[in-house]
Simulated scan of single mutants.
Amino acid sequence: MTADPITDHRFQRLREARLAKGFDTAAAAADAFGWNRNTYASNENGNAVFSYRRAKEYAGAFGVRPEWLYDAAGPMLPATAAGFVPIVGRVGANPDGVVLFATGQEAGDLAPIPPGGTDKAAALRVVGHSMRGVADDGALIYFEDQRTPPTPDMLGHVVVVEVDTDEVLVKRLLRGSRGGVFDLESVAGPTRHDAHLRWAAHITAIIPPYQARRIIRGAG
Rank of each mutant, 00 (worst) to 15 (best):
D145S: 13
A79F: 03
E67D: 12
L110M: 14
R65Y: 02
R37C: 06
D164V: 09
N36C: 04
R37A: 06
G179E: 01
T39S: 12
V168M: 11
L174K: 11
G176K: 00
G46R: 04
G92N: 06
K171S: 07
K120A: 14
D96G: 12
E162S: 10
Q12T: 09
G128R: 06
A201R: 04
F101Y: 12
A30M: 04
V98G: 01
P152D: 01
A102Y: 09
G179T: 00
A28H: 02
R213P: 05
R178Y: 03
R198C: 05
K21H: 13
V91E: 06
L124C: 07
R65T: 13
A139G: 09
T165M: 06
R125Y: 08
P112M: 13
G104N: 08
T151M: 00
H193R: 15
L77D: 05
V88M: 11
W68F: 04
N47V: 14
R147M: 11
A73R: 14
K120I: 02
A81M: 14
G220F: 08
P112R: 02
W35V: 07
E106Q: 15
S51L: 07
A26Y: 03
G117N: 05
E57P: 00
P5C: 08
A59T: 01
P75T: 02
A55D: 02
I207W: 09
D4S: 11
I141A: 00
W35M: 14
P208D: 14
R65N: 12
I215H: 04
E167W: 10
P150C: 02
E106T: 11
L100D: 14
G63A: 04
A121Y: 03
S130W: 12
K56E: 12
L197M: 03
P75R: 11
V170L: 15
D164R: 14
H157K: 15
E162I: 02
V85H: 09
D24E: 15
E67I: 03
P86I: 09
A55N: 03
A107G: 05
D183A: 02
R214E: 15
G128T: 09
A28F: 05
T165N: 14
D166N: 11
D164Y: 11
A73E: 10
A79R: 15
A200D: 00
A200F: 01
A107N: 08
R214K: 15
E44N: 04
E185V: 15
H193W: 08
D137T: 09
H193E: 13
I215F: 06
W199K: 00
A28C: 03
M76E: 11
A111Q: 08
N43T: 02
I113E: 01
G89Q: 10
I206R: 14
D8N: 12
A219K: 10
E106V: 12
E167K: 14
A82H: 11
Y142K: 06
G220N: 13
T118D: 04
A3H: 08
W199D: 05
V160R: 08
R198E: 07
A17I: 03
N43P: 07
G74F: 09
V161N: 01
T103F: 11
E44M: 06
V168N: 09
H193T: 04
E16D: 13
G63F: 03
R178H: 11
L173T: 00
R147G: 03
S130H: 13
V99C: 09
T148E: 10
R192C: 01
L100H: 13
F62G: 01
G116L: 07
Y70T: 00
K21Y: 08
R18I: 10
A3E: 15
